[in-house]
Amino acid sequence: MSRIHITTTVNGETAEFLTEPRETLLDVLRNQLGLTGSKEGCGTGDCGACSVLLDGVLVSSCLVLGVEAQGKTVETIEGMATDGALHPLQRQFIEHAALQCGFCTPGILVAAKALLAQNDNPTETEIRYWLAGNLCRCTGYDKIVRAVQDAAAEMRGAA
């Protein structure tokens, strides 16, 4: 099958790859670019473990084709800490014990970051509905919601 040359920006850096038209963005990120922080929990858009930002919009990268990244910007979990400093969400997740196995964590962090970008003071209900597309089987979500609340408060304070 012929492959297509794609140029895109991933976590602020130019990235190029060759992809079959049927290959998902998730597979390209994981298998070609070595960015295995985004996870595949379902491959059908139901679990959110593969969440990334595409031109700033939260998407399930298992439902996006690699070719669709042409000329766009992609942000993954690997780009969340800047200059070695954790994002407040990342730090709050560790401090709140908001992860057990940690497999859902990258997707949830990316999704939560997208929430806080558009709503710096979400209510518990808003957090719960925003994260309803991110399955976590371990935690019961309690500590996740609290960690997002505290990260939001911290970021408001810092702003």
Partner: peptide, 21 residues
Amino acid sequence: TRPNRPDGLDKVTGRARYGAD
């Protein structure tokens, strides 16, 4: 006490290596 878990940093940065990684 409730210290940070030692594998926390790897797991919030996407570095932790799971089965398919």
